[in-house]
Design a protein around this nucleic acid. Structure first.
Length: 359
DNA sequence: TGTCGCAATGCGCGGCGAAT
DNA sequence: ATTCGCCGCGCATTGCGACA
């Protein structure tokens, strides 16, 4: 972070308030205290702007919806204009709202960084690392990393949120979490001020019902029975974001040109259940196949010639050298390096060709 | 007499549930 | 989503007793 940005944070909130102070009326002996914009109001404003409804924002903040309504009303009365257009089930920013939004983000970001920066001076006090990531990485990589961290930093707590990749980035950019764990393909472009620390390469695998032996299949139409071909050509797509969904779809189109989408899932547990039941096959990241004992009964995992997904830790660049984040990143890398993918069967001959696109 | 510590009190703020 | 009434909490103020 730019040092000047921190200094400017205080000034900015002060300036917002100063600009709003109109000359006080001469009448009246007692000067009533003028209301000022508070950080609390800015946090609520930010949350509503991002979630677009008071109800969603209230859930996100852990407050009741009426409280948000009241705080927004206060903020609007201080500002002297509407910040949101109220439509049925949607709150959209007005021009004034957009103007405040750009300033509020700076204030909130700097406050968060100020709080985080001060943790290094907190001595024996407890520090909370806020972390958001996709389910599979949180389940497989994180536990070992946190165990190792507890040995080195017993006073560090973890606030862990499981989210879809888009939400992870949203939380990260809004400085509501310190670290995001996502696939690098989820990050559309290089984000200014953020580092991508590589954690683990996660190979893609094809999950099929146990009865569907593909080990010697060179031409499915010739080597498989009609019923087996039907199962192979029913894809159960394991998706999160639209970008990833498109790439997975391309892979199926190239490798199984006769396939049709039987189901779309957002959790591997559901997808693997459908595969086990014989509904179809599923292309999934290997890490997501690591589950509790017995979870992989009834299915086979095949290697595919598709580039691995790269799991990265997204962090604001200034955290790279700040404890305990720095050690946590190193620990995540150590755990990632020692990750052992489940035992996979060799790529079926008919799939033994490279896919055109990265997943 | 001035200072300190503690308890009681009042006020403002922000929370919530219910009603609209 | 907004409004209303109520409740709890935190803070400032006030009053009182103990002490130097």
């Amino acid at each position: 972070m730019d040092e000047n940005e921190t200094d400017n944070s205080d000034k900015l909130l002060g300036e917002i308030n100063a600009l709003l102070r109109s000359p006080r009326p001469a009448t009246g002996k007692v000067k009533a205290k003028r209301p000022e914009i508070t950080l609390h109001q800015l946090r609520i404003f930010w949350a509503v702007a991002h979630s677009e409804t008071l109800t969603k924002a209230a859930k996100q903040l852990g407050l009741a919806q009426p409280s948000l309504s009241q705080q927004l009303s206060k903020l609007e009365s201080i500002v002297g204009t509407r910040l949101f257009d109220r439509r049925s089930n949607q709150m959209t920013l007005t021009d004034a709202g957009h103007y405040l939004m750009s300033r509020a983000e700076t204030v909130l970001r700097n406050m968060r960084e100020l709080e985080d920066g001060l943790t290094q001076f907190s001595g024996g006090q407890r520090v909370t690392v806020r972390l958001s990531g996709i389910n599979s990485v949180l389940r497989v990589i994180l536990p070992a990393a946190i165990t190792a961290m507890h040995a080195k930093f017993p006073d560090v707590d973890f606030d862990i949120q499981e989210n879809a990749p888009g939400d992870v980035l949203e939380l990260l950019y809004g400085r509501r979490v310190n670290i995001g764990l996502v696939a690098s393909s989820s990050v559309a472009q290089a984000s200014v001020g953020f580092l991508q620390v590589p954690i683990v390469d996660d190979p893609m695998v094809l999950v099929v019902p146990e009865s569907l032996d593909l080990s010697n299949v060179r031409v499915p139409a010739r080597d498989l029975r009609k019923g087996q071909r039907a199962v192979l050509n029913q894809s159960i797509q394991f998706i999160f974001g639209t970008q990833h969904a498109k790439r997975v779809e391309d892979w199926y189109d190239q490798m199984l040109p006769e396939h049709r989408v039987a189901a779309q899932c957002r959790s591997f547990e559901v997808a693997i259940g459908l595969v086990r039941a014989g509904l179809g096959v599923c292309l999934a990241p290997a890490i997501s196949t690591v589950a509790g004992a017995g979870a992989l009964d009834g299915v086979r995992l095949y290697k595919v010639q598709s580039p691995p997904r790269h799991i990265v830790a997204m962090v604001p660049s200034q955290y790279r050298r700040l404890e305990p984040y720095s050690t946590l990143l190193e620990t995540l890398q150590d755990v990632g390096a020692s990750f052992v993918a489940p035992t996979l069967e060799a790529t079926p001959p008919f799939l033994d060709r490279p896919a055109l696109n990265d997943l």
